[in-house]
Design a protein around this nucleic acid. Structure first.
Ligand SMILES: [Mn+2]
Ligand SMILES: [Mn+2]
Ligand SMILES: [Mn+2]
Ligand SMILES: [Mn+2]
Lengths: 219, 219
DNA sequence: TAAATTATTTAGATTTGTCTAAAAATAATT
DNA sequence: AATTATTTTTAGACAAATCTAAATAATTTA
């Protein structure tokens, strides 16, 4: 079953949205895809006919097993290409997302697998997100939101909550990236900011908004 | 000016067809793009409005300066990706064309230039065709059709007349590839076949059809 | 030159993905 | 419970790219 670029983008968005919440609503999807709710309704019907998702009018949508499998293969391609761009072509990790949005739709299965070999079967993309293998499996690292970590804990950044240019610009400025190790020093009640100490570096303050966008694992 | 994938494919086809002949006809284009003449007429009007080609009804079409420039950049991407697939991902030279047909439409300019650097600025693709540089210039190697070479001449294969699977299969079987050196031994009037001797190998016979599909340079 | 053939264009329809505006269903407030 | 607000769906229109069938132009053949 061959999907159009548009269909693939819908499937992928639903996949990401249904991780967080249960059923994905029409409005959520419209926002995420920068389109209108009416257009989403049309597409949901179409994808339902292709057995990629279960859709109940007014109740939102979830991917079927098949839909999830398709989504995982698109995510696999997206993250492999991002790794390629950073590791081989010297792109910055904050400039690869847009390009990968196009590359992920190149259809050759052989290309994906040969690319994976060429890259040495990487397990994580440049943003710290796990790369699904050919069967759709990915390593599960227990991740915590930085805002929930108790003072005194040593953690390592393993992914970021979005790929927005604004966020990545701020991270670059603060010298925080994937695999940066940091000690949580203190949490301030007033503005929910967090004081941290980056390994071999000075103490800095992280705003509530930034802390909520950082995911870490215990080291 | 951003072109759709379809528009890019039209521009590229016209570019290739107008190399050989003068004006490109509607029917030729339809055949080359596996579409119908009526569809071609529609698209020619559209591309004319975008100033990419000069179109006179019933008289065929030629690219404008701008159209040619666009075409060269698509060809550049196509051939760079083909080189990448063969040189880095270990694809066979006979299996890269289809994949490159998709990759050539990925739009990031930065990607093309970084890919070019990563590959070491190759001058020829795996089929021996020259890769245009960022300004659209490509090295011109004087090429001859093997069928026109006089006996006694030493030549080197530098490109093939088509990328058909059938042709590439035969070449693989005869152990002929890009940069294969061969001495032209004798031409037979009866069937216009050619006897050649591949360097460090035995004498073999090349059919008229095959000789017409091989382009060589003098060494 | 006139007739027949071939090439090209026009006319009208179709598919895909989108949109706006209006109607209907659901959820939240009073 | 009734009203209001929000969400979602329907109805109808539109642009892009395509197709078939018919009309017209150009070319070839007789
Ligand atoms: Mn991304
Ligand atoms: Mn990523
Ligand atoms: Mn090719
Ligand atoms: Mn090629």
């Amino acid at each position: 079953m061959n999907l159009t670029v548009t269909e693939e983008n819908y499937i992928k968005s639903i996949f990401h949205l249904q991780q967080a919440e249960g059923n994905v609503s029409t409005n959520e999807l419209a926002a995420s895809l920068h389109t209108k709710p009416a257009s989403v309704t049309d597409m949901l019907k179409k994808l339902t006919n292709k057995n990629l998702l279960n859709y109940i009018p007014y109740q939102g949508v979830r991917l079927t097993k098949d839909g999830k499998k398709q989504a995982l293969m698109i995510v696999r391609k997206h993250r492999l290409w991002e790794f390629f761009l950073v590791d081989k072509l010297q792109f910055g990790w904050d400039e690869v997302h847009e390009v990968a949005e196009e590359l992920e739709h190149v259809s050759s299965k052989k290309l994906v697998e040969k690319l994976d070999s060429f890259l040495g079967h990487p397990k994580f993309d440049p943003h710290g997100d796990p790369i699904p293998d050919i069967h759709g499996n990915m390593v599960a690292v227990r991740q915590f939101n930085l805002i929930d970590i108790k003072p005194g804990t040593l953690v390592e950044v393993c992914s970021v909550g979005s790929q927005s240019a604004e966020l990545l610009e701020l991270l670059r400025h603060k010298n925080i990236g994937i695999s940066t190790e940091m000690l949580i020093m203190k949490k301030f009640e007033f503005d929910h900011s967090v004081e941290i100490k980056i390994k071999n570096s000075q103490h800095i303050n992280i705003s509530q908004q930034l802390a909520q966008a950082l995911f870490v694992k215990l080291v």
